[in-house]
Computed example of a mutant assay.
Amino acid sequence: MRTSMSKILTAVTIARVALSLDVSGTTKFQSSSKRGLVYISSEHSSDDQIWVEGNSDLTWYYDYTDIPIDAYSNRSQAEFEFVPMLWGSANSSAFASEIRSQMTAGRNITHILTFNEPDGSASTGGSEISPADAASIWIKDIEPLRNESIKIGAPSVTGSQNGLSWLSQFFTNCTSLGTNCTVDFIPLHWYGDFQGLASYIGQVVASYPNTSIWITEYALPHSDLKTTQSFFQTSAEYFDRLDYIERYSYFGSFRSSVSNVGPNAAMLTQDGQLTDIGSWYLGGAATGNSPSSSSSGSSPTNSGSTGAGYKLNSWKSGLQALITTFAVFNFGIWF
């Protein structure tokens, strides 16, 4: 079977990025205008400002609702873009009215998100909407917003084969109702290792070519610290290198003591200090602040990883990315 040399070189280049940086010591992590905030409310209001202080890389955020949070009300869309979301099926007509009202008041809304994990159950944060109901709501209340020059994201399904099946059924239902339900980008969620993430993205790209992708929730849950840090670095570098990944937002903007994806995935320690991952995500250097599941109020320590062992793990992840990308685009193999 003939293979394209350009595809091979592309795959090699994408894999090589995982080997390119050593962010130990005081070296800052690479900057990226793609990074956004998955805003999670906290009992510690001071935590809200961490994400926009200093030289933060974050350019946009969403909060699972159609209303921006008060903490960022003094920031324009150009400074920190708010992306509204229609979370579920309730009040979809009110959603469209709210968007138009904000635009009339001067907020320059250019993108919206729709239906948070509609294939998932309420117990896991899903909005539990059938593809048929979602298509009907989309045509009635979402599609008209395209007349406002707003770019619309597809429903944000779970990172599973069931999610991809739901998305396919959604588009089929749209067609049966007489419209293509045009989307400008496809938001994805992923909780798992990097090899699975790369393969999942490959599936979506193959199914929906020439469509931009946003990774709006992702993390490696409940893993050891070094593995979690390696996953973050490798995946962020991967996203930054791929042109069709337009934006991404890491799920970890909370304290490690309340993290539902494990303390090591959190971007803040139990005391509200930036972890290595938190600082890297903002484009900074490793902090050495070690996350813990305890909320004892103990002082941050410097016992966390500061990059040691990253290159070894990155070789493994980089090779996995190369193998996955090569197999997906040349042989149609999914891992």
Rank of each mutant, 00 (worst) to 15 (best):
V12C: 10
S298R: 05
L58A: 10
V204E: 02
Q195R: 13
L322K: 03
L58Q: 07
S292C: 04
G284Y: 11
R35W: 05
G88A: 15
L167K: 05
F239R: 02
D22K: 07
L177A: 05
M1S: 15
P68Y: 03
G309A: 08
S73E: 11
P84L: 03
D243A: 15
F194P: 00
S290A: 13
V205N: 07
D63E: 15
G332I: 13
D63T: 14
W190C: 08
S293T: 08
S296L: 14
Q233S: 08
N108Q: 13
F170Q: 00
A219L: 06
S294F: 14
I333P: 01
G36F: 02
S303Y: 11
W166T: 02
S42E: 11
P144G: 08
N173T: 07
G283Q: 10
S314A: 13
N173S: 09
L282Q: 15
K316V: 14
L220F: 11
F331W: 15
W166K: 01
L282N: 04
S295T: 12
F171M: 06
F194H: 08
L242C: 03
T65F: 03
H189Y: 03
E128A: 12
F232S: 02
P144Q: 13
S101Q: 12
S32W: 10
L188K: 02
D243I: 10
G163D: 02
Q273L: 06
F115H: 02
G304F: 05
T324Y: 03
G309L: 05
V12K: 06
G202Y: 07
A265R: 03
T182Q: 10
A206D: 09
D193R: 01
G297T: 11
S293Q: 11
G159L: 07
I129F: 01
W214M: 04
F170I: 13
Y248S: 05
R2H: 13
L188F: 12
S256G: 07
V205K: 11
I186E: 01
S290V: 11
L197S: 01
L86I: 05
N147H: 07
Y39Q: 05
F239L: 07
S207E: 10
I69N: 13
T216H: 03
L164V: 08
P187K: 04
I201L: 14
V183M: 05
Y191L: 09
D63H: 12
T27W: 02
I323Y: 03
G318S: 10
G304M: 05
L145C: 05
L197F: 14
W315E: 07
A15C: 12
S253P: 01
S168D: 11
S257R: 04
N180K: 11
A18C: 15
S123K: 12
D47R: 00
D271H: 10
T13V: 12
F95R: 03
S298M: 08
T269H: 04
N260D: 14
S156N: 12
A198H: 02
E98N: 15
I8K: 12
Q273P: 08
D70C: 05
S32Q: 05
G125S: 08
D240T: 06
A105E: 15
P300Q: 01
W166H: 01
N116L: 08
